[in-house]
Design a binder for these strands. Structure first.
Lengths: 246, 246
DNA sequence: TATGGTTGTCTATATTAATAGACATTTTGG
DNA sequence: CCAAAATGTCTATTAATATAGACAACCATA
């Protein structure tokens, strides 16, 4: 669709090798090299981007570090991994079902949980008085053993006491809710923004610096419209896209 | 909500000053400095990020270049501009109404138009035979004289001949559709991804290199469900967020 | 098995990014 | 008006980034 044959820029605070790495990563995700299963030769890429071959090699080294490509002397640079998960955002958005069969193994890990008073912002979103106790879960989700999202999520403590255990056991919010007597819930709003990955993202999501993060801030309610969960989730932008079906 | 007190990273291909500029820009957009209307002193920022004061100065110089801050000797670094437009994505998403009163002046510019045969991908999305003529519009949207999106959008040529003129005159897709006899249309799907800004983005959207772009790929149909428009729009991520209300 | 295409490694050099320190200049507020 | 708190400017040094060229090592295949 978009050719994207824009050239690479100097003196912008982003090293050439990183810009090139980002471009190649995007091309791979886009399926541009599917015919061969290989990235074009270093020589060709260097000419294409108008840089020295060594600069391209730096870019490929970075991608190899991420596990996306593997260079083999004499053969070329092979594509190892190529994925972009699609997350449908609907009134009935659920993480695990959303992935569907895009991944064989799905995992939900509880990194940390705590009880705390609701901040001003949070209390407004959950429609509870400021300072009301809420349970905060820090979770990491994986698909086929690759981390795909890092979430911070809050629940009213009075209604969902013990949800940390329920989630820890089941690895699923949907199941945890069910264990606590909430059989159904609805996504009422989702805000989507994007930013550069910070240190925590790099560590948790196993990204390389300079990566882009998609952020979704979501509010779920029960069928009566009473807020039950507010979540801020961070996804690696090169692995994930959101789809909103109306 | 998220404190974001992650530190800055070295040797990642992204210059420290750029990482710091991005962080400060985000803090400004987030309203962190609203109390004073000023960015903290260079000394303080340097300590906060663990870098030399000169490095912070480079970051602030970049933000000044973007018109976001203005440094005044003796006083400090004043915040000039602070905006993040919100775009609701619903079944009845329209650009101009979506912005609503978030901007006083709204503009839609036609950069270029052409007629071309539909590609494989496009024909599938618009549900027309491959190669069927489509009209492509390249548009730029502004709010209060600042560019907020750069779109490429396609229409079936047989049904919407002359839409380039209609858009050019009105600066609005909604109005252009109406001029061609389509009084109503619906957003059926939107895909959201993010990437680094490329050269064209930098030029068209007046961004500084390294900026992040939110990409929305949208399909609109008439009330009968027949596709009438497919659009790929690019938004500066630090100025825009999407909201999906279910 | 020879050859062309490809990645791996090495040396050298120039430019950019980052640190460090000192001091000048300007504004604000007591 | 003075002092504190800012930003502005200058010099010097080190580390990271990028270019350039040459050649070795390896793989596929004709």
């Amino acid at each position: 669709m978009d050719t994207g044959q824009a050239n690479v820029h100097r003196q912008n605070g982003v090293a050439l090798w990183r810009q090139i790495a980002d471009r190649i990563r995007a091309s791979i995700a886009n399926g541009d090299y599917d015919a061969t299963g290989k990235v074009p030769p270093e020589f060709t890429l260097a000419a294409q981007f108008g840089v020295n071959r060594h600069t391209v090699r730096s870019a490929l080294a970075a991608l190899a570090q991420e596990g996306i490509v593997r260079s083999v002397q004499g053969r070329g640079t092979l594509i190892e991994r190529k994925e972009r998960l699609n997350f449908p955002i609907t009134r009935r958005t659920r993480f695990s079902e959303g992935i569907g069969d895009q991944a064989r193994e799905k995992e939900g890990l509880l990194l940390h949980s705590a009880q705390e008073p609701a901040s001003t912002d949070l209390s407004a979103r959950l429609r509870i008085p400021e300072g009301t106790p809420v349970i905060r879960l820090e979770t990491l989700r994986k698909a086929d053993h690759r981390p795909v999202s890092r979430s911070t999520t809050w629940f009213p403590a009075d209604r969902f006491g013990g949800i940390e255990e329920a989630y820890s056991k089941s690895g699923s919010i949907t199941v945890a809710f069910r264990m606590l007597g909430l059989s159904d819930y609805l996504r009422v709003s989702t805000e989507v923004t994007a930013t550069h990955a910070d240190g925590a993202d790099l560590a948790d999501l196993q990204l390389s610096p300079g990566a882009i993060i998609l952020i979704a801030r979501a509010l779920n309610t029960d069928t009566e419209g009473v807020p039950v969960q507010y979540a801020v989730s961070r996804f690696p932008a090169d692995m994930v896209q959101f789809t909103i079906e109306n």
